[in-house]
């Protein structure tokens, strides 16, 4: 995008929205027999995105270990998913606030301080 910081924020936002999609998928499949909870390795993906300068458009999903498997083979924990749902929304909000401030600075520079 514009500079390194906004590039990094862009990768971060992409990763958060990818993770949010997996959370939505887990919630939708909360009653599907045999379905296993999916997630992305957020830290590792973010690290890789910051190294390469862009988020992987299709990161590999991992199945989350350590969750209790129900009798029908499903291991979706709705508490975990709702926590991640709000956590992702908050992370996304935070990153958009940063990006907004960054864009505002740029706007100030363009308008010679008049638009500040």
């Amino acid at each position: 995008m514009l500079d390194q910081l906004s590039n990094q924020l862009d990768s971060y936002l992409t990763l958060v929205s990818q993770r949010q999609k997996l959370v939505a998928s887990n919630i939708a499949n909360a009653d599907t027999p045999g379905y296993k909870t999916k997630d992305i390795d957020f830290e590792a993906q973010l690290h890789a995105a910051l190294q390469t300068g862009g988020a992987n458009p299709s990161p590999s999903a991992i199945t989350v270990p350590g969750l209790r498997v129900k009798n029908d083979g499903n291991n979706v924990d709705l508490d975990r998913e709702s926590r991640l749902l709000s956590e992702n929304a908050m992370r996304f909000n935070m990153a958009t606030q940063f990006l907004r401030a960054n864009l505002k600075d740029l706007h100030t520079a363009i308008s010679g301080g008049a638009g500040a």
Binding site: Q20, V23, I27, A28, E81, L85, F92, N93, L99
Partner: peptide
């Protein structure tokens, strides 16, 4: 489960409107 899906939709909707507010 229906409620959980509705919450997921409103969380994502909020994220989308945040990115439009940028």
């Amino acid at each position: 489960a229906y409620q959980a899906n509705v919450s997921a939709i409103s969380a994502v909707k909020d994220m989308i409107s945040r990115s439009m507010d940028l």
